[in-house]
Nucleic acid binder design. Structure first.
Length: 388
DNA sequence: AAGTCGGGGCC
DNA sequence: GGCCCAGACTT
C-alpha cells in the first residue's frame, strides 16, 4: 500500500501542484513516483558520495544542534572552522550554558546573524536547567527553544534522533521544486509548507536522517541553483524538471529588495595612555551586544564633518575630543543596508568617559578579547596601516 | 506577508 | 553588481 504515490493524490493535497507546464509533462509522462525506489536511489547515493564534515562524525544532538544553527544562511566551508573552535570552547551543553555571553559572541565573531549565538545559548541554558542537559526529542518541545524554527527542529529530530520529520531549507525547496515540478514562489513564507507536505509523503521512515541530509547534500553538490548537474544526479529518473527540461527555470524565486544606504562617521579615539575607546552596542537590533568604535549615523556634509564630529563625540563621552586626521572611507554591505563610513583618528582626554556604562578604554593587545563586527575590524586594520 | 538580521564567495 | 547560502524572529 502506498508504494506508489499517484500524482493525482499529491495534486489534491497540495496547492499549485504542477500548476504550469501540464503539456510538457506529456512529453515524458511521469505519472507516478516510486517512493521506495526514490528513497533507495537518494540514500544510497548519499551514503557513497557524502562529504566528510565535522558534525557528521557522530550524532550527538548538541553538536548537531550547534552545526544546524551555524549553517543557517551560511555556507559549509565558512562554518567548519567556527564549528571546531566553538566545540573546543564549549564541548557540552553544560559548558555553553555556563559561559559568559561575551565569550560566546567572541566565538561567533565574523559569522554573522549574531542573534543566532545569543538564542542558542539561551536555549541551551533552558535545556541544561529544564531538561537536565538532554536535548528534547519531541517536535513540540524542541520547537519551543529559542532560535529553533521549523527547519532546525526537523533537522535535529531526524539527524540526531531518527524521527521522520521534514527539514525544509533552501536546498530542499530547490530540489523538490525540480523533482516534483512545483512552481510556487519559494521566496514566499507560505510556500515552505507545500514542501513539508511533500516531504512527509516521501521521507524514509527507516532512515530519516540520511534521507534529509541526502536532499541537502544533493542540493549542495548536484542540484545547484544555476547549473544543476543532472547527468550526475542519482534521482534524475524521478525528476519531473529533468524530463521536461525545465531544471534551469526552477525554482521560482522573486528578487529581494535593494539595500538602503546609510552614511556613518566613526573614529579611533586614543587617550594619553595610548588606550582606545570602545563601547558595547545595544542589546537589541543590528549587531546587538557586539563592540564598536565611537560612531554616529551622519547626514552631515563632508565639508565640516570633522568639527561637528568633535563636538558630537565630546558631548557623548564628556571629554575633549580632537580628530587629528581622516583615515579614509569604508563601505560595508549587509543583507538589508549598506554602510558608508568616514573614518577618523584622534585623541580624547580620559575624563569621565570610562565611567559610562558600556564604554571602556583598552590597549591594543586587549582589543582582540572583544567581539567586533567585521566593518569595525576593517576600520581598525585601516587605522593600523595608516599609522605606519 | 514583509522587514530585520551578517558575511563571504560566486558569476 | 546581483545572487546565493542547512532560517528565525519581529512587526
Amino acid at each position: 500500500m502506498n508504494t506508489y504515490l499517484l500524482y493525482s493524490q499529491i495534486y489534491v493535497s497540495l496547492t499549485s501542484w504542477r500548476g504550469k507546464n501540464l503539456d510538457k509533462q506529456d512529453v515524458q509522462p511521469l505519472e507516478t513516483i516510486d517512493i521506495e525506489q526514490f528513497q533507495t536511489d537518494l540514500i544510497s547515493w548519499f551514503q557513497k558520495e557524502q562529504r566528510e564534515l565535522p558534525w557528521r562524525k557522530d550524532k550527538d544532538p548538541y553538536k548537531v544542534w550547534v552545526s544546524e544553527i551555524m549553517l543557517q544562511q551560511t555556507r559549509v566551508d565558512t562554518v567548519i572552522p567556527y564549528f571546531h573552535r566553538f566545540l573546543e570552547l564549549f564541548p557540552e551543553v553544560k559548558d555553553l550554558a555556563q559561559a559568559e555571553e561575551d565569550q560566546v559572541l567572541k566565538a561567533w565573531e565574523g559569522l554573522g546573524y549574531y542573534s543566532r549565538a545569543r538564542n542558542l545559548q539561551s536555549a541551551v541554558k533552558e535545556v541544561y536547567e529544564k531538561y537536565g542537559g538532554i536535548v528534547p526529542n519531541t517536535p513540540k518541545e524542541i520547537s519551543s527553544l529559542k532560535g529553533v524554527g521549523p527547519y532546525t527542529a526537523g533537522a535535529i529530530l531526524s539527524i540526531a534522533y531518527g524521527i521522520p520529520e521534514p527539514a525544509v531549507d533552501g536546498n530542499v525547496m530547490r530540489v523538490f521544486s525540480r523533482i516534483l515540478s512545483i512552481w510556487n514562489d519559494i521566496a514566499k513564507p507560505a510556500t515552505r509548507k507545500v514542501f513539508e507536505t511533500a516531504v512527509r509523503e516521501l521521507i524514509s521512515h527507516d532512515n530519516p536522517s540520511d534521507f534529509n541530509q541526502a536532499l541537502m547534500e544533493l542540493g549542495a553538490l548536484i542540484c545547484t541553483p544555476t547549473s544543476p548537474s543532472c547527468l550526475l544526479c542519482p534521482v534524475r529518473d524521478h525528476c519531473a524538471a529533468f524530463h521536461e527540461g525545465t531544471q534551469h527555470e526552477l525554482p521560482i524565486k522573486t528578487k529581494n529588495k535593494k539595500q538602503k544606504h546609510v552614511k556613518m562617521a566613526a573614529a579611533i579615539l586614543v587617550n594619553d595612555k595610548g588606550e582606545i575607546l570602545i563601547q558595547k552596542r545595544p542589546a537589541k537590533g543590528l549587531l546587538a551586544n557586539l563592540w564598536e568604535f565611537p560612531n554616529v549615523e551622519s547626514t552631515l556634509s563632508y565639508v565640516d564633518e570633522k568639527a561637528l564630529l568633535e563636538d558630537r563625540f565630546a558631548d557623548l563621552y564628556s571629554g575633549n575630543v580632537h580628530l587629528n586626521r581622516s583615515i579614509g572611507q569604508l563601505e560595508h554591505v549587509f543583507s538589508h543596508l549598506i554602510w558608508n563610513i568616514n573614518i577618523y583618528a584622534g585623541t580624547i582626554d580620559d575624563g569621565s568617559a570610562s565611567e559610562l556604562q558600556n564604554v571602556k578604554f583598552v590597549s591594543i593587545e586587549e582589543l582582540n578579547q572583544y567581539a567586533f563586527p567585521v566593518p569595525y575590524q576593517k576600520m581598525f586594520r585601516m587605522y593600523q596601516l595608516e599609522k605606519e
